[in-house]
Computed example of a mutant assay.
Amino acid sequence: MEQAKKPNPDGYVHARDAEEYQRLRDQAQMWQRATENIFDRIALAPGMSCLDIGAGPGSVMRLMADRVGPEGSITGLEIDGAIAEQALRDLRAEGGAKFDYVVGNVVALEEVKGAPFDVTFCRLLLMHLHDPVAILEKMHFWTKPGGVVVAQEFDFGSIAVEPLCPAMAEFNRLFEGVFRGHGRNMRAGRQLPAQFEAAGLGLPDGTHCEVKYIPLKDMAAMLIGVYQGLLSAAKELGIADPERANAFRVEMAEAAADGRYYCLTPVLIGAWKRVT
C-alpha cells in the first residue's frame, strides 16, 4: 500500500497533489452541465467580471470565460499557489477572457483585487469550512449592486451503490469518518438557503439541483481517487486501515468490471441571489 501523505496545514482533508487535481478536473467535467445551467439562469454575459473562490485548476473559470468573452474578466481565489500558477498559465494560453489569480485563504482575506464583481461564485467550498456563513458574507460584500452571489454544494445523503456493494460500505466508512471527524458538512447543499439568509443575502432567488445514476464503471475511478486522497486525514483520526484500503481498491475495481452495479451520486445543489 502507498504511504498516506502528510495532512495539509490549511485543513483541506483531501490530498494536494497531481492525482487530486486531476480528480478535480474529472469531477468538474462531470458536473459541468449543472454549473452551466446556473450561469444561464443568472444571465452571465459578455463583459462581466467574475470571482471564483476555491478556483483550483480553473475548470469553472474556463466556463465563465465562454460567457464573458474577451471583454470580461475572471479572478480565481485559491489557497494553493502551485496549482494557481499552473492554472493561470493554462487559462491565459487558451485565452477567451482576462484572467487573474489571487493566492490566499478566503477565511483570512478581507479584500480581493478586482472587487466588486458582477458574479461571485464558489463550488464545493463551503462544505469544507467551519463558518460558511462568514464566507457568504464576504461574497456579498465583494459583489456589485445588481450582481449575483452563487454557491454550489454537495449533499451526500443520496450516495449509494445498487445492488449492495461491500466496497461501497468501506468507502462510506472512511469518507464519513473523515468528514465527520474533521467537522466537514455532509449536508451543505440543502443548507444553502438558510446560510444565504443568515449571511444577510436573503433567501435565494433560485435553486437548481442535479444528481446522476450511472454505471459504477463510470464512477469507480472517482470513488477510488476520493478514498486514496482521504487516507492521510483518516490516519490522523486513527481510522485508516492498510488491509481494508488494499481490499477496497481491489473490490471496487472488480465491482466496476462486473457490470451489474449502478452508482447514485451526491446531489449537487446550487443557489443564487442578486444583490440589491
Rank of each mutant, 00 (worst) to 15 (best):
E2K: 10
P7D: 03
A15W: 01
A15P: 02
Q22P: 00
A28P: 00
A28Y: 00
A28K: 00
E36K: 05
E36C: 09
N37D: 10
N37A: 04
P46K: 06
G47F: 06
G56S: 09
V60H: 07
L63D: 01
M64Y: 02
D66N: 04
R67W: 10
V68C: 02
V68I: 03
P70T: 04
E71K: 15
E71I: 02
G72Y: 06
S73D: 14
S73C: 15
I74N: 09
T75Q: 13
Q86S: 13
A87H: 11
E94H: 05
G95D: 14
K98L: 06
F99Q: 09
F99D: 10
D100T: 07
V103R: 10
A108E: 05
L109V: 10
L109S: 15
F117K: 12
C122S: 07
L124R: 12
L125T: 04
L125N: 01
L126E: 12
M127N: 02
D131S: 09
I135Y: 09
L136M: 04
K138E: 05
K138G: 02
M139Q: 05
K144L: 07
G147Y: 01
A151V: 02
Q152H: 04
F156T: 00
S158G: 04
P163L: 08
C165A: 02
P166C: 08
A169N: 14
F175H: 08
E176A: 00
E176S: 00
G177S: 03
R180G: 13
R184V: 04
R184S: 06
A188G: 07
Q191L: 07
G200M: 15
P204R: 07
C209V: 13
E210A: 11
K212P: 13
I214F: 09
I214D: 15
I224L: 00
Y227S: 00
A233F: 04
A234Q: 15
E236K: 09
L237R: 02
L237A: 02
G238R: 01
P242R: 01
N246F: 09
F248E: 08
T265F: 14
K273G: 14
K273N: 08
